[in-house]
């Protein structure tokens, strides 16, 4: 991330206040420094999408990815974006709401720009890409925390690695994952006791391998 630049935020637009708040909660857990604004339900607490609430949520963030649940939430979000003084500061993203919000939040936490955050959310809808094994240094790491590379450990790993100038691949069995993709890391299914192979290329490849080994040694701060 550029020095002093604000992290990209997230706006979650849903027909339900509780759904919007819940998605924001799950995404926020992965990204403590990202503003995740929820706009769900109608003004009177019913099911629907409220233009004014969406506009207020947009006002709470700067550059932001906007995710929505169903068709009319998209339409209300579109209208609210069109009504901004600078509509180009946000991107409406067609992505699965929960996976997309988590992927976007982690990307934003790592300092990704708006386009990269949006594309992380969109990619959450497809099968995790099989990462080409990065040529270069390689280490074997045994996971000693109980849940392995799941949820928070995966998020912490993706966040840590995405801050480095390195391309990192984590392999487990015949599966491999981009080290900066929380969903791909989780899809490896590596649990406590499993051994993963981590390889890295790029200017900070050594730092990346050291960082991964370090995180695993600390049981990912679990």
């Amino acid at each position: 991330m550029h020095d002093g630049a604000e992290r990209v935020g997230l706006v979650v637009v849903s027909h339900s206040a509780r759904l919007a708040a819940g998605v924001a909660e799950v995404a926020g857990q992965m990204a403590p420094d990202v503003t995740v604004a929820a706009a769900g339900g109608t003004a009177d607490g019913g099911i629907g999408t409220d233009f004014d609430a969406v506009s207020e949520a947009l006002a709470r963030v700067g550059a932001a990815a906007v995710l929505y649940d169903l068709g009319s939430a998209r339409m209300v979000a579109e209208l609210a974006v069109e009504s901004l003084d600078d509509p180009s500061r946000v991107v409406l993203v067609d992505a699965p709401l929960v996976e997309g919000a988590v992927a976007a939040a982690v990307a934003a936490q790592g300092g990704a720009d708006l386009a990269a955050v949006a594309s992380a959310a969109r990619a959450a809808g497809s099968e995790p890409e099989v990462a080409a094994p990065a040529e270069g240094e390689e280490i074997r790491v045994r996971l000693t925390n109980e849940i392995g590379l799941h949820a928070r450990p995966a998020a912490l790993t993706a966040r840590t690695l995405s801050e480095l100038d390195a391309s990192v691949t984590v392999r487990f069995g015949d599966k491999s994952a981009d080290g900066t993709s929380v969903l791909a890391l989780m899809a490896l299914g590596a649990r406590g006791g499993d051994e993963v192979v981590v390889s890295a290329t790029g200017r900070q490849s050594d730092d990346a391998l050291r960082a991964f080994a370090d995180l695993a040694a600390r049981d990912f701060d679990e």
Binding site: T42, A43, G46, I47, G48, T49, D50, F51, D52, G71, S72, M75, V76, E78, L79
Partner: peptide, 15 residues
């Protein structure tokens, strides 16, 4: 209509 209709009709009729 955009502000007060909670469903799809709000943005559609509003637009």
């Amino acid at each position: 209509l955009i502000s007060k209709v909670g469903g799809a009709a709000g943005p559609l009729y509003g637009t």
